[in-house]
């Protein structure tokens, strides 16, 4: 693709739950600088509150 305007090699990911973390990891490992924004004091989202996950009953943490 040809770009008249140069693009910026960084991405803002809004939300530090499992979805945001996965996007951030993929992007950082693909050569982009990532800002991972989270409204609470730590990342992890609701998944960190779960005990086990279905259907394998793996620990969510």
């Amino acid at each position: 693709m040809s770009n008249a305007n140069p693009v910026i090699g960084s991405v803002l990911v809004v939300g530090g739950g499992i979805a945001g973390m996965q996007s951030a990891l993929d992007l950082a490992n693909s050569g982009y600088y990532v800002y991972l924004l989270e409204k609470s004091p730590s990342i992890g989202g609701v998944m960190s509150q779960l005990d086990k996950t279905f259907p394998t009953n793996d620990c969510a943490m």
């Binding site: 910026i8 090699g9 960084s10 991405v11 990911v13 809004v14 939300g15 996007s23």
Partner: peptide, 12 residues
Amino acid sequence: LNVGSVILSPGF
């Protein structure tokens, strides 16, 4: 912040 794109994953 100056970024190239934004991903919204604010959850539920």
